[in-house]
Design a binder for these strands. Structure first.
Lengths: 236, 236
DNA sequence: GAGTGGTCTAGACCACCTA
DNA sequence: AGGTGGTCTAGACCACTCC
């Protein structure tokens, strides 16, 4: 594993924060000091520090120095694109995924618009039910552009589709647009989820794009109200 | 010189995208070409381009070049910290804010923990009701650390508190932690909102921090289900 | 004035893509 | 092979904070 010098410095400082050598309110060494310490140029050190700041671990203040922020922030780093598996492993939950339906279809005009492809384009549609701690609480409706993500099948869908895309197909995922809103429960929700009397779901609509800007996925994740949680750090 | 060279280059390219000179899929000039063009070093150009990419306007691809992304992305940039006013102006909504309560109080242990201050610390508590297109749909419960945000009053609360903090007090806001979840309606929701039969609200909990890492605010925004919307771009 | 982070420069070498 | 972005260097000057 060849990792950049910038990343080594990032990890090195992050470790000191994680293991408590550096604590909330502590001042870090100056950029010049860190340069000597790690035998790197100041620019390289700065890039590592910018990363730490962006991810909420430290805060630079001009003329004063850099300070470690509250360890709370570390727990908040579920931001960015994270797979369903990663998040729930982190939270120590028992999770199962069941593929309820796997259906190749041709895009109707509405779906074509959501996926930014032509009408009639081949699309793989998957319905998956997520069971957390014994209750069916999330219904995922996935639509993948078959031309971009070939070879999808039920087995892959029941494991991790993102792992398949990144490691088997070797594609790079770049960014995702998300919208979060609430909707009244529909027929599908009632069929697949344990609603426990709730009459709305939280819907996370997601369009995901490859490194070259092509959209390959549209997904609706329908969460039972009381099991939904989203966290985030927003920077000015 | 008020604005940095890096920022000038950023704006210059952004203009070309906004006014349609550069369109979805178009390739930008290379970093070296842009360096000559703007009489800047390659590093400076790169910093401007990194910003454009971070904000979802362009995508770099190693060995190929940089490409303009879909203009959809521009509309998605409600991310970051945005005030209630800004978002709704953008959406062309009619909006009113009514201050239902303004109450200086001393932090109990629970509130002190949420604000990261000592128990008994002076806190300004504000309840505000947001009316959108004639319906009361958002209840904001604000808690400001009085020592950091002095001089708050009802008038400021009914205008824009953030404007007061940044422009009157001259403080710099740095970042915010957000958590989004759903909760059953409580007594306050029923008293202040037009619930229209819904029995849950979407709660956005928010802790906001100054440039020096001090937390000055804890806020709960309680949204009526059917009027809640959140959008976002997540990058790998 | 000394020390900090913020910006910028000019140049080098590498990894990747398209010929 | 030539062009692209990715990383890194060594050094400069500025703005801000603190003593």
């Amino acid at each position: 594993m060849k990792t950049s010098k910038c990343n080594q410095i990032y990890q090195s400082i992050l470790n000191e924060i994680s293991n408590g050598k550096l604590q909330h309110g502590d001042k870090l060494d100056s950029e010049n000091t860190l340069s000597e310490h790690h035998q790197a140029s100041r620019s390289t050190v700065r890039k590592a520090l910018d990363l730490l700041q962006e991810r909420g671990y430290v805060q630079k203040i001009q003329g004063k120095g850099m300070f470690v922020l509250s360890p709370d922030n570390i727990e908040f780093n579920l931001g960015g694109i994270v797979s369903f598996q990663e998040v729930n492993l982190k939270l120590g939950r028992t999770v199962q995924t069941e593929v309820a339906e796997f259906l190749p279809l041709d895009a109707d005009p509405r779906l074509a618009a959501l996926l930014q492809v032509g009408t009639g384009e081949r699309v793989d549609h998957i319905k998956r039910v997520r069971t957390i701690d014994g209750e069916k609480v999330i219904l995922d409706l996935n639509y993948f552009v078959a031309a971009l993500i070939p070879g999808l099948d039920r087995d892959i869908a029941s494991a991790s589709i993102y792992h398949y895309i990144e490691h088997e197909l070797g594609l790079k995922i770049s960014y995702a647009q998300r919208v979060i809103e609430a909707q009244p429960c529909n027929e599908l929700d009632r069929r697949y989820l344990d609603l426990k009397g709730t009459d709305h779901v939280i819907v996370v609509k997601n369009r995901t794009f490859l490194y070259d800007g092509q959209q390959f996925e549209y997904t609706e994740s329908r969460h039972r109200l009381d099991k939904f949680l989203f966290s985030d750090i927003a920077r000015r």
